[in-house]
Design a protein around this nucleic acid. Structure first.
Lengths: 142, 142
DNA sequence: CTTACTGTTATTATATTGATTACAGTTAGA
DNA sequence: TCTAACTGTAATCAATATAATAACAGTAAG
C-alpha cells in the first residue's frame, strides 16, 4: 500500500475538520508529519480530480472542494495506490516448457486483481466523514 | 504484498502438479525464477507448519504434505505476508495538540486491519487446487 | 567418504520510498 | 511595483526494503 493514500485521507479529514476548511501545505505537513513538498504533490493529485482547490500567493493554501460525507477511501485508493496489491516481483517464466512456470504469472495476476477489487469494495464503505467520526471516538475514549 | 506469498503458492502448486509430489530447491527455484536459497527459506516456513516435508541428503528435496483441495491462499498469506496491507509509514503525531494529528495513526491502523481481514477472506476462497485449475484453463486458452 | 541435498546466516546489489532542495510561477498587500 | 507567502514541479539525496548471492554446517544415500 502506498502511503500517499494515508496522506490524502489525513489531509482531507484535516480540511474537513478545520472551521474554514482551509490549510497551507506547511500546516498540513506539520499535522501529517511529513515534508510540505510531499503534501503539495499529493494535493496536486486531489486538486486535479476536484477534491480540493488550490490558491496560490499570499493567504493561499488548499481548500476543501468536496462533500466529506460522499467521498470514500476507495476514491483515494484509486487515485494514489492503484495496483499496489500485486507485488512487483512475479514468479514463473513464459519461455519454459512447464505448464506451471508458463502460466503462473498470469494466474497470480488474476488473483491479485480480485484481491484489489475486494479491497476497493471495503474502502468504498468508508467516507471521509467516517474517518473523522472514528478520530472523535478515539479522542473521547482517552 | 510480500512476494514470498507468490513463491509459497507457486511452489505448492508445482508440488501438487508433479506426479511424485516432490522437487528440490533447485528445481523449484528454476520453475519459479528465483534463487534456490530463497526457495529454501520459504519452504522452511511451509515445513514448520506441516505443509511440506523436507528430506535432506542425496535424493532429497521437498515433498507435498497437505491436501491441495483444502489448503487456501489465506493460510499462505498469514504465513508469509501478514501485516503487509498497512504501509510502513504512518501519518500524525501523538504529541500534538490537534485531535486529528493525535489520533489519525490509530484510526488508519483500524482501517488497514479491516482491509487485511477482507483480503484474507478473499484468499480463503482460493485453494491450491483452484490455482492449478486456473493454470490449466490458462494453458488451454492458448 | 564423497556427493547431493537442506538449513541458515551474512553480505551485497537493486529497487522503492521518503526527505530535502531548488526554483519558477502566482497573488495579496504595503 | 516590490516583497513576502504561497503553490507546482522536478531533481537529488538518504533511508529502507527487497531480492540475489555466497558460504558453510548438517544430513543421508550409495
Amino acid at each position: 500500500m502506498n502511503s500517499e493514500f494515508t496522506i490524502a485521507v489525513h489531509s482531507l479529514a484535516l480540511l474537513a475538520y478545520r472551521p474554514d476548511h482551509m490549510a497551507t501545505s506547511d500546516m498540513i505537513a506539520h499535522n501529517v508529519c511529513t515534508h510540505p513538498a510531499r503534501v503539495r504533490k499529493v494535493m496536486a493529485m486531489l486538486r486535479k480530480q476536484g477534491y480540493v482547490a488550490a490558491k496560490e500567493g499570499i493567504g493561499g493554501g488548499f481548500l476543501l472542494n468536496c462533500n466529506p460525507d460522499e467521498v470514500t477511501l476507495a476514491e483515494m485508493y484509486r487515485l494514489t495506490s492503484m495496483g499496489s496489491v500485486k507485488p512487483g516481483w512475479c514468479s514463473g517464466d513464459e519461455e519454459q516448457d512447464c505448464m506451471i512456470a508458463c502460466n503462473m504469472a498470469t494466474v497470480m495476476d488474476h488473483i491479485f486483481s480480485g484481491a484489489e477489487k475486494q479491497l476497493i469494495d471495503y474502502f468504498g464503505q468508508w467516507t471521509i466523514r467516517d474517518v473523522l467520526e472514528q478520530v472523535r471516538k478515539e479522542q473521547q475514549s482517552k
